[in-house]
Design a protein around this nucleic acid. Structure first.
Lengths: 223, 223
DNA sequence: CACATAAAAATTGTCAACAATTTTTGCGAA
DNA sequence: TTCGCAAAAATTGTTGACAATTTTTATGTG
């Protein structure tokens, strides 16, 4: 994970178990739809049910688990319509993030993005065409979002929506064919950021995400 | 409040106290920045600290309260930069909601919006110019968002962001001068929805929110 | 054998007490 | 008086037990 935890990272049982469960859900160790039994989990992680329940409430508002009153909690199951919904939200939010990034990104920030692209390019040349898996794509998006300088937007995308995105990507990462195109779209975006062109940056990012969505729709309809 | 609670409304102490505290924060009974002491609150509402803490965690992820590890929770204080951040997010999200609404709204939905505008217009004629306070504006936005048919978007806006918006609006509602213009913008949007013009609907909604933001910026800089 | 019903087991919801940490208070010395 | 430090009070973090509800299981009847 290229992400750095917040500076004021809590160190309570509730916080720790939240992160642990979050990651277990995202990477699939806790399968979608599986029941999250409080006695079982508290025994497994050697904590009492109090902090565990607090953690579950937080995961609930991250939309990673779904609660049924008196029926317990289950890991969310993302079906195609829901994934599409998420991509519509990403389109709007990350488009805006790109626009704000064009306004606020530093020269150093742009250099970092360029460096990221260069590494990816070299990797593609070496391995013969495959843009470094989903992780590289996510890393790139993370940095653009960070450059927006809008704390609430950063939180909404990186601390809430992106766990859902990654949860989905774990089972269906980028197709090789889409990979190269995505890389070019990233290059295009960096150009727009460098020119500080807010509208263009927003447009490019939105198109980028629309194409990703269309790719997923097609990919899943053919299976 | 014109909002209807979810069909599967939980009826646990934790859920009830969440709603109670949420509303108390939104309407200002619990002032921004004030400390939320667990012993005090649990005594005041006659519940134990367990459910209360679960509620606090949920309010935390709704961004209505801020936690400091071992230091307790305080009601969030919205300063101008944060409000501006929220309006940028609203611009992106509600713009998208308007676009989706243009695609998905029913004829009946459009009729309902028209009726809403008509009532507002009559009220303006009667009282001499003032668009029915912030509530009417929020009600209109609510309905457009609902018409988007994107459940996750609806939840993000109506169950998360809008409590923050309302919390702010309670102390600084619409200026009379802005009121009439806002009404016209609403009319304009309904026209676009009626034509099922997604791009235009998005554009109008975004401009509407940009103007609201600019109005707030000006209003607060002059005080 | 199928089905309904009731008892039993398991799980969620809630509580009150204990531990750990932070803040406040009070005292003494420079 | 003011500053620093230690004791005390208050608050948050955590736990295990109890109550309420749901699910499972067993049993008896048609």
């Amino acid at each position: 994970m290229s992400e750095s935890e917040n500076a004021t990272t809590e160190n309570t049982l509730a916080s720790n178990i939240t992160r642990t469960l979050r990651d277990a859900i995202v990477c699939g160790d806790l399968a979608p739809g599986s029941k999250l039994s409080e006695p079982k989990l508290s025994k497994e992680y050697n904590i009492s049910r109090g902090p565990l329940r607090e953690a579950m409430r937080r995961l609930e508002s991250m939309k990673l688990v779904k609660y049924v009153p008196h029926g317990g909690a289950r890991v969310i199951t993302l079906d195609l319509p829901q994934v599409i919904e998420i991509y519509h939200i990403r389109e709007a939010l990350e488009g805006k993030a790109a626009a704000l990034a064009a306004k606020n990104i530093t020269d150093e920030g742009i250099e970092n993005l360029k460096r990221l692209l260069k590494i990816a390019e070299e990797h593609m040349a070496a391995t013969g065409g495959a843009y470094i898996q989903a992780d590289a794509d996510i890393d790139f998006h993370y940095r653009v979002i960070q450059a927006s300088n809008n704390q609430m937007l950063i939180h909404t995308l990186c601390e809430e929506l992106y766990y859902l995105v990654r949860m989905y990507r774990y089972k269906s990462s980028l197709q090789p064919s889409r990979s190269l195109q995505a890389f070019k779209e990233h290059q295009h975006l960096v150009l727009a950021l460098e020119q500080r062109d807010e509208q263009l940056a927003e447009l490019i990012m939105r198109k980028h995400i629309v194409r990703a969505r269309e790719n997923i729709e097609q990919q899943l309809l053919n299976s």
